[in-house]
Write a protein that binds this DNA or RNA. Sequence first.
DNA 1: ACCTGAACACCGTTCAAGT
DNA 2: ACCTGAACACCGTTCAAGT
Lengths: 189, 189
Amino acid sequence: MNRPRGRPARGQGLTAEAILDAALALLDEGGEAALSMRALATRLGVTPMSLYHHVADRAALLAALSERIYGGVLDGAPDDAPAEPALRALLLRYYDAVGRHPALTLAIFAEPAAFAGATLRITAQLEALLAGLTPQFAPWRDILVDHAHGSGLALSAARDAAQAKDLRRRHEEALDLLLGQLRATGKHG
Amino acid sequence: MNRPRGRPARGQGLTAEAILDAALALLDEGGEAALSMRALATRLGVTPMSLYHHVADRAALLAALSERIYGGVLDGAPDDAPAEPALRALLLRYYDAVGRHPALTLAIFAEPAAFAGATLRITAQLEALLAGLTPQFAPWRDILVDHAHGSGLALSAARDAAQAKDLRRRHEEALDLLLGQLRATGKHG
DNA sequence: ACCTGAACACCGTTCAAGT
DNA sequence: ACCTGAACACCGTTCAAGT
């Protein structure tokens, strides 16, 4: 394509924000394979190399997306709420984040470098809440996180919105089953 | 490279077996990114195109690997054993398969076509065993499978064999915690 | 500072040709 | 039947050059 080279005349050039928006859209639409630096550049109407002025490389792009999506999971959580409803709400927000962006989640699983920021903070918050409910917080932390992951990823196989809603309802029931067990264990364990 | 072209003189040419062995080794050593058709061909001392006479494409290769690894999980399970120990043994064999080949597991997650054979049979067997233990088999099936996945994948972050062993012990404890809850639920639920 | 084209070392897969 | 080289349409990333 014959695009003018050099810096564009006006100030509205490429931004990290716009790159992340487009990258997330590619990921959501076509899975990890669809998110290539070249496809991303094409979608933004730019050459692939322009991207490297705003993100270090593809791994950093995934890490930034992880921060954007999973960072939001911890926002808006009142810290004066009782532990159990707070735990339940946090887990459902996490499940929803996984379910909305399964390809991102899978990509992060394979990219240990992206497993640094928001996901660790979520785990820490989870542990803090669990510590107030049961002495055995480590196994419960794993069980609950794994369940959110697996159940959220399964959401991507839903045929339509109705089935997705049904899956979410069943996830919520299973979560309540687990939280009921946790409550029983916490009391006499 | 100057390799003789055409069919090799003796009968010991490339086999699907040898391709799967090498593919699994690449996957285990370097993750999904390391398993390219070209790297696989190089490791086997062959041109990339030779592979296509034995496997349809990369997706079929992953599906065949899935069948090899997860097919073994169901083998050697006596069907006259009581449901609970049979369930426990099946889940631990599944966990071990995931833990031994995390990259394969992750690759299959992203490749819906590979989610056909052995994994579905494992789920079916799990459901059959659970049906004898609790009326609520669907949520427990999800909880137990998700836990095996998550915990097995976490195994790949272990620094050494000692830590891996410790993680496995903790997984087993968490599994027994869940099975204890399941037993309690089954009785009065 | 930010964008460009050209280049390098890769991919998966198809095709026509060898034996 | 099974292997080959050449080709096509892709990758991520680096570099030197433009404005």
